[in-house]
Every structure is written in structure tokens, then in C-alpha cells.
């Protein structure tokens, strides 16, 4: 016997998607289990760690704190949507790789989303602004130093292009 389900339709990474899920399905579970977009991670499921961060209409949100049904028809961007259309790395992703801004990679998708959203609204952030922007995302591996360096590198590279 299974639970009653509801049809949810969203735009994820530019594609129309839908799924039949129980009403209590969170966005992170919808992305991971229904759409099998497993790049978005869950670290606490209570809104503290930031691993589950995605963009909702361009703004970062915690996907563990919303139900998928609340977002009917809205636009979501996940880490899988950051790469270039041809699948190659975006400048930010490439800068993370170049600056060794990831170790275990578990916080990385959420970090990338928070950093991308910062760069979208502030093309030349200071170190302090970078730290504020990623303070919503916990990382246990890096001590944040190489992440700050990577975001700075990405901003420099974007300015040059």
C-alpha cells in the first residue's frame, strides 16, 4: 500500500519536469529520488548545513526546507545546471577545480550554488563578501580558504572574459 500522491511540475535546469510524489516530499528528495539529480546533497535536513542549496528563480534556498508541491511551475537550478551547455565546466566550476576548493565534494554543489548566486549579483566581491555569501554553507574539509580563493579566481576570470 502506498501513500496518496500529487502531481508536481517544475522547471529544473531549463527543462520541464514532473513527478507524482507524496505531498510531504521535500524539494531535495524530489530532485534526488524522483528526478535522480543526485548532485544536490542533504547534510542535516534541518536548514543548517547548506549542502542542499539550489536556486529558486535565481535566489538560493535550502531545498530541505520546502516541499516540492509548494513550488509548482517555478524555476529551479541545481549544480547539474551550472555547467556550460556543451557539458564543459563553467568558469566557477573550473576555478573550484583549479584552486582545489573541494576535498570530499559533499558540500561542493551547495557551495557552488551560493557562490554563483553571489557572482550573479556582485561581479567583484571582496574576500569579506565572499565569506559572508558562503557562510550559509558548512564545509568540514577545506577550512574555506581554497573556496574563498576559488571564488576570487572565478571573479577575476569572468572580468577578463
Amino acid at each position: 500500500m502506498s501513500e496518496e500522491t500529487i502531481l508536481v511540475s517544475l522547471e529544473v535546469n531549463g527543462k520541464q519536469v514532473s513527478g507524482l510524489v507524496p505531498a510531504r516530499t521535500t524539494l531535495v528528495d524530489f530532485l534526488r529520488d524522483e528526478l535522480r539529480l543526485t548532485g544536490t546533497h542533504a547534510g542535516c535536513e534541518h536548514g543548517t548545513c547548506g549542502a542542499c542549496t539550489v536556486l529558486l528563480n535565481g535566489e538560493p534556498i535550502r531545498s530541505c526546507l520546502v516541499f516540492a508541491v509548494q513550488l509548482e511551475g517555478q524555476k529551479i537550478t541545481t549544480v547539474e545546471g551550472l555547467s556550460q551547455p556543451d557539458g564543459s565546466l563553467s568558469i566557477l566550476q573550473d576555478s573550484f577545480s583549479a584552486a582545489h576548493a573541494q576535498q570530499c565534494g559533499y558540500c561542493t554543489p551547495g557551495m557552488l550554488i551560493s557562490a554563483q548566486s553571489l557572482l550573479d549579483r556582485n561581479a567583484q566581491p571582496s574576500d569579506e563578501e565572499i565569506r559572508v555569501a558562503i557562510s550559509s554553507n558548512l564545509c568540514r574539509c577545506t577550512g574555506y580558504q581554497q573556496i574563498v580563493n576559488a571564488v576570487k579566481l572565478a571573479a577575476e576570470r569572468m572580468a577578463r572574459e
Binding site: T38, T40, E80, F96, S97, H100, G105, L112
Partner: peptide, 17 residues
């Protein structure tokens, strides 16, 4: 560069969940 990094920055890591 770390060989592992491309999969992590694209969300293609393969964690147990």
C-alpha cells in the same frame, strides 16, 4: 589538479545515498 575534482564540481560524485 586533483583527478577527482571534475566529478565533484559537476555534481557527479557517487555517494552512498
Amino acid at each position: 589538479r586533483a583527478k577527482e575534482s571534475p566529478r565533484f564540481v559537476t555534481g557527479q560524485g557517487r555517494f552512498v545515498a
